[in-house]
Every structure is written in C-alpha cells, then in structure tokens.
Amino acid sequence: MLQYAALDAYTYMKKTLLSLVIAFNAVPAMAQTLTDGIMMGRGKLCTGLMYGQENWSTYWEGTLERSNQNIGTLQSQQYMWMGIYGITDRLNVIGSLPYVKNHTSGGTLHDMEGLQDFTLAAKYRFYRLDSDKGRFTAHVVGSFSTPMSNYTPDFLPLSIGLHSTNLAARVTFNYTFRQGWFVNGSSGYTYRSNVTLDRPSYFTNNTFYETNEVRMYDVFDFNVDAGYRIAKWQANLTYMQMNTLGGGDIRRQDMPFVNNMMNASRIGGVLMYYLSKPKDFAVRLTASSVIDGRNVGRSTQWMAGIFYTFHFTKTE
C-alpha cells in the first residue's frame, strides 16, 4: 500500500503534459487531462510549472499531408501552471492554465500569444478492488474549460486556441500490479460551445455561412497506456486518439478553419524522477508525436516541469 501512496502525487501530471500536444491548437485540454487512474491523497496539493515546445513542418490538408513554405515550421511555446488537490482520497480537483505563444518560421504572418483556457475538473474514484496481485480502480471525471483571454480562433495555425467553452465527461480504468507494472485505459467525450468570429461570413465544409457564429462539433477521445513505476522512477508509453465528430476538411491551398474535422493519433512517453533532496519535489519530461491525422499538424512535442507537493493533512 505504501507504494500506491508514493505514486499519488505525480501521476496526474502525465496526461496533462501530453494534452498540450496541439494539433491546430485544437486539443481540448481537458479531453486528455484526467486520463489516469491514480488519486491524490486527502489534504495534498501538488502544483507545478511546466515549459514545453511543439513543432510541426507538415500538416494534413484534409487527408493530404503537405508542407507550406509560407508557414515553414510552426513553433508553439507553452508555459503552464497546474495544481491538483485531494479533497478526499476518492475526490480530487484539478486546475490548469497555459500561456501559449505561436510563431511560424516561414511567411509573414504575425505571432499570436496569450493566456489560453482555464480548466477546472473533478475526478471521482467510484470503484476499487484490491487483490494479492494488484489493484483495479475505476474513475469518472467531469471538467469545464473556458478561454481566459479574448484571443482569436480565426487565425489558424497561429491562433493559440479555438476559444470554445467545453464540458467533458470521462471514464478511466486502471490496473496496477504490485510489482509496479500498470495498464490504463480512458475515454472522454467533450461538448464544445459555438464560437464567434470577427467577420460576418465564412465558407466551410462546402457551405457559405452568413453569420459570425461557428458550430463547434463534439470531440471523442481515448487513450491506452502501459508503464512501470518503481521507487523514484516512472516510465510509460501512451497511444492517444482524438476524433472531431463533424466539420469539413481544409480545402486545397486554403487556411485551416476553427471547426475543421481535426483528428489525430499520437504516441508518447513520460519519464519522471522523484527527488530525494529537496523533499517533495519531482521533475518530469514528456514527449509525443502525431503519427497520423486529418486537418492537423504532424507535431512533435516535449515538455519539462517541476512540481512540489504540500501536505495539509498529516498522513501516516
């Protein structure tokens, strides 16, 4: 049991880091955030700051992968705060807020930067079964995210986000063996509010709309991962799939649009190390790559962060 307790503080971070893989900055942060199966213990607050980059130099125009000299390489820099608090051993709340800066190496388009979307989520473990071999747990997550600045979603791929307000629901199953191996599966459904543009009309999905309001389609995602945690080290691999349940393709030589059908498959990994000194600190490194997609960039992403855990309730 001690082993489980030691793991609590940091495993939450994993998917949040991966979640910052922007496609066309499309990934709803919460859809991939709360996908693992470990709870933070009661009275503990884990909080950290992260920095990361994501780059792509080819993207899928519909299903056609291409480069574009007027974009060159799209580089996104991300600075993020996040925190997780254990209200009880079975109920955690999580918050995150990224600042994003996007830049293209080619062409003339202006950089975009700003505070992106604040996410607040609650995670509840509704089932646990311990056995001699390990522990099975099942969780549900409800989350809410909304833009924290008036950034435009209508300047993709430079826009820092899609500016919708999202509600997501997720279910996660985890099995962790006593020896430290674990497998995890999670699936989420994200409802996205419509967004408004600065212009009075737009053309997308072969239809001309005489309005500034854009229909945003829901997003379905799932991920599976497997890894090993022992003592001060953690390592795992993840496969993630995101599908937008509607929207059109980017037309030949057109710009991407906020409600395109953005789909992505990616693989990634996490390495984490818990410091002995100073106590309660941890560092982690994550990386991931899009391996297939539609109307998104073939991006490669890494993030590094440092975390600290406060203990508000004396444990053990």
């Binding site: 435009t152 300047f155 600065d198 212009r199 009075p200 009309s201 737009y202 001309f208 037309r251 057109d254």
Partner: peptide, 18 residues
C-alpha cells in the same frame, strides 16, 4: 492590438471569402 486585429479580420476578405 486585439481591437485592431478584429478590424483586420472583419475586412480581410481574403482567400476563401466573397
């Protein structure tokens, strides 16, 4: 500024528009 960018985009009327 964000206000000026909104004006730029209101009138951009570039590729893919009328």
């Amino acid at each position: 500024t964000r206000e000026r960018l909104a004006i730029v985009h209101k009138w951009a009327d570039g590729a893919g528009t009328y």
